[in-house]
Amino acid sequence: MKPFAFERARDVDHALSLAASSPGARFLAGGTNILDLMKLEIEQPPRLIDVGRLPLAEISETASGGLRIGALATNTAVASDPRVRRRYPALARAILAGGSVQLRNKASVGGNLMQRTRCPYFMDAAKPCNKRLPGSGCSAMEGLSSTLALFGASEMCVAVSPSDMSVALAAFDAVAETVRADGSVQRRPVETLHRLPGEAPQVDTDLAPDELILAVELPPPPPGRQVWRKVRARASYTGAIASVAVAGDRVALGAVAARPWRARFTEAALADGASPAEAAGAELAHADGPESRKSLVRRLAADAIREAKEGAAS
């Protein structure tokens, strides 16, 4: 780990001004991801700005009938909030599928969105990785990891987002509200908060260095049942091989792209009356990757859609 400066922000403005004046600085909330990355020298920020004690943990009703979740609400707090559990059960389940109890007790909503990929070649500073060291190459492309992007990848990077929570948020059309040092507030859909790798996989999001997530806003849940499924080799504490969130007529896929992947082709097919299998296939027709992996995602999505439609867990 490289030596670094540590500063605890007094308030949001202080956090933003610190960020604006210290190139390469990172915000620290729960610290469940960035500290690991710093120990491995994958992240080497000269300064950490601790935002963990800012008053941004509230979960409140919005005027439109949705929920506003403060960026510093812990994953545990969100998943156990009665309003979330009643109205957005797929979100609660997605969060509970992530990490471990200990991690969820520390991890914040904002930090969950900002966590970096767990691609094993990104996580190993000795290996070429365009996301970690631009231009060094992609070790995953011909590598041993099987959880590679099916959508939106580039020749530079095939890493996937590890966030389960964001998959459900994308299905709910959630929006991340951010603020910059100049006071400007932006509202960014969670679905597109993360960039696709393109030519610059080292840049995860469009957020400016001095831009801090304040909250995530959930519109009222769509009508219809909600389903969350996560495929993984062991029953807890491991990333998804694939996941799916279904909220009414909306479908989002996880662990298949550098961002939570709204299956728009699937949704359109469903609107046209397609069967769950046909609808799932409509999205996978646009996927790029091994057939076995496409097949898994197709089966998973179809079964989740079927469950949501039929209202019975199989």
Binding site: R118, D124, E142, T238, G239
Partner: peptide, 23 residues
């Protein structure tokens, strides 16, 4: 073993999947 490097793919307890309580 990643034959390009001679290293193991997994090198932490998040990647090397020993059973957890839920299993």
């Amino acid at each position: 073993v990643d034959p390009r490097f001679g290293s193991f793919l997994h090198q932490d307890l998040g990647g090397y999947l020993a059973p957890v309580h839920a299993d």
